[in-house]
Design a protein around this nucleic acid. Structure first.
Length: 618
DNA sequence: ATGTATCGCGCC
DNA sequence: AAAGGGCGCGATACAT
């Protein structure tokens, strides 16, 4: 059994996909207990890795081995398939799971882990690690002399840290599965998502025009500063806004910390509360329009490489295991608002391809059902039933609902209640969320406890279990719960964490030919670019992979996992043209129209501006 | 100069 | 006693 510990020094890590030959500069490696070697003969190290029984390194599946695969023909697929890779980053997270929240994000770099284990941390230099200092001194990571003694010392120390660290990390079955999962998902990074650069640049220009006009209005009418990107959040801007509110006879709204609040909810609340105060309504509307301006087009362009694609990172760092797609953050692109959903039109299938998408139905609820085994809850998730209809019937009664005619009249309220049952929402939040009275909310929460006794008992159990701080989901993922937050976090982590792994089960079931087409994963949704000629076959294969029955253990009642597919899209927004049929502009076809009669249309706004300008000129 | 916190937008 | 959870990104203010 030979183990190779490995680390690479490369050009700027952000340029993995478009740097070209020479990206990998030096490799450091050690075989078993032998001394660490460093070399610029990357091909030789690649062969050493391929021949090893096991290769171990920090974030190797997310970076180093991807680089060797891209530039040095490493057969990574085979290494992973044969369980011959241990990524110590993935292992560290399973051994010592992260808390939720940003405060825990820095616990998993090699330096921090080493120090926790009582080992020496990384060599430091001026302004951070020795490596950063060198890059600064020589003008870039790719300009550090490959034989610089500090450079080599840094590399060698990292390999030694990895080797030492690996002795402290357990490898369980879940972790082997996780390596196969991440190898699959990293196809998203590897192939990238094609960007409609012309459209992005057009949207950037249109936004600039809009924002300039809004800033001028805020300046002229209320005295806000003109400079800066968000003048209303600057100190001077807040002073001017507070004065504006007071002049309008309104006490300035505050955030919990006492700062001036300018968020959407607050402003809409003010508008609704003072409909006759026209000056106030005007101010709130102007601020809301300005707040709503985001720069997704700019973000996409910032991350687009020479290949005209973005290669987002796929990071499973969340406390529940849920996956973040970052740089750019595709998981948070707009979908609910009419204007925002069209931002997705900037993302395209490959040439000759279409985009397809499929999402899992109420997957968090199914995850809870598997764990709690509540008969009523499982029954509500049977194929052909609608969870929210069943929930509405459970709490509001069957009266007024004709099952054969369609949805329960209070299905909308029930959606919030489904979440309330899983995540420990209180009566107050439920009342706000569902638009019902506090008393009603209390009654319904109590009714749910009776209707779903198994769910209630499971939540009690897992809250208690979470006092050990680390709980396990159905697949064996370990998740940390913040002490004191067991009541809400423990059930939530089970729901989200198991939902995550049910989606990954689907990912593992995808046929290999589809993997290069993976473009995004948004928690319960997969997006793929597939050849137009094979779209039928691809859709069938994706739905087959994502749909199965799952039970958490032998003898337990299985719960079906169900999926729906979207439309085939010529861009990502186009995938949702049926789902958003009230917004015709979501469809790609609509963009090809020379004009449309809708004054709020995203695509034909430009025409209108031009005609207004013409009128002004005349 | 660099890192952290806060706010507010967005997503599931 | 009461309690929805999990995130990313950008702009700004502030500390070091």
């Amino acid at each position: 059994m030979s183990i190779v510990y490995v680390d690479l020094e490369t050009a700027d890590a952000d340029r993995l996909w478009d740097y070209g030959t020479g990206f990998v500069r030096i490799a450091g490696y050690a075989v078993d207990n032998r001394p660490v070697e460093s070399t610029t003969d990357i091909a030789a190290v690649t062969r050493t890795i391929e021949q090893a029984d096991l290769v171990v390194g920090h974030n190797v599946l997310g970076f180093d081995l991807l680089a060797l695969e891209r530039y040095h023909d490493l057969d990574l697929s085979r290494l992973v398939r044969e369980d011959r890779v241990v990524d110590t980053l993935l292992a560290a997270r399973q051994n010592d799971p992260p808390l939720s929240g940003s405060a825990d994000a820095r616990r998993y770099n090699l330096d921090a882990i080493a120090k926790r284990l009582g080992l020496d941390g990384k060599i430091t230099g001026a302004g951070g690690t020795a490596l950063k200092a060198l890059a600064k001194k020589f003008g870039g990571f790719d300009r550090i002399p490959a034989d610089h003694p500090d450079y080599l010392r840094y590399l060698i120390q990292d390999v030694e840290l990895v080797r030492e660290l690996s002795k402290h990390l357990a490898v369980d079955d879940y972790l082997w599965r996780e390596h196969r999962v991440m190898w699959r998902l990293n196809h998203i990074t590897k192939h990238g998502f094609r960007v409609d650069v012309d459209l992005a640049e057009r949207l950037i220009a249109e936004r600039q025009t809009r924002v300039r006009a809004q800033k001028k209005q805020l300046h002229d009418v209320y005295g806000l500063p003109l400079d800066g990107k968000k003048p209303h959040t600057t100190t001077d801007g807040k002073v001017a806004l507070e004065k504006a509110f007071i002049d309008l006879g309104i006490e300035p709204p505050r955030t919990p910390t006492g700062a001036l609040a300018t968020g959407k909810e607050v402003l809409m609340g003010l508008e609704a509360g003072h409909p006759d105060n026209t000056g106030l309504v005007e101010l709130c509307r102007t601020l809301r329009a300005f707040n709503g301006e985001r720069s997704m087009a700019q973000t996409l362009m910032d991350h687009a490489g020479k290949d005209g694609r973005v290669h987002p990172g796929v990071d499973p760092h969340q406390a529940t295991g849920r996956i973040s797609i970052t740089n750019p953050g595709l998981s948070v692109m707009g979908k609910r608002d009419r204007g925002n959903v069209c931002e997705r039109a900037m993302l395209l299938p490959d040439v000759g391809h279409v985009l397809i998408s499929a999402d899992l139905s109420q997957i968090d609820a199914r995850a809870m059902a598997m764990h709690c085994q509540d008969a009523n809850y499982i029954a509500a998730l049977e194929p052909g039933k609608d969870m929210h209809d069943e929930m509405a019937a459970a709490v509001f009664g069957e009266s007024g609902w004709d099952r054969s005619a369609g949805h329960h009249p209070r299905r909308g309220d029930a959606k919030a209640i489904t979440h309330a049952t899983s995540y420990g929402m209180g009566a107050r939040a439920l009342a706000d969320n569902a638009g019902i009275s506090h008393d009603d909310a209390e009654r319904q929460l109590a009714a749910l406890e009776l209707k779903f006794p198994g769910l209630t008992a499971f939540k009690t159990w897992v809250r208690d279990d979470a006092r050990r701080q680390v709980i396990e989901n159905a697949f064996g993922r370990r998740m940390r719960v913040r002490p004191g937050k067991e009541y809400t976090q423990a059930p939530a982590h089970i729901g989200q964490g198991t939902a995550r792994d049910l989606m990954m089960e689907g990912v593992l079931r995808l046929p290999e030919w589809l993997l290069p087409g993976l473009r995004a994963i948004v928690h319960d949704e997969l997006v793929l670019s597939v050849p137009e000629s094979r779209a039928d076959e691809a859709e069938a294969a994706v739905l087959k992979a994502l749909q199965f029955a799952y039970r958490t253990a032998p003898g337990k009642t299985p719960v079906p996992v169900l999926a729906d597919k979207s439309d085939r899209g010529r861009d990502w927004a186009d995938c949702y043209r049926s789902e958003k049929k009230n917004w015709p502009e979501v469809a790609r076809d609509h963009r090809d129209l020379p004009t449309c009669g809708d004054s709020d249309c995203t695509w034909h706004l430009g025409n209108e501006v031009i005609s207004e300008e013409k009128e002004n000129a005349a």
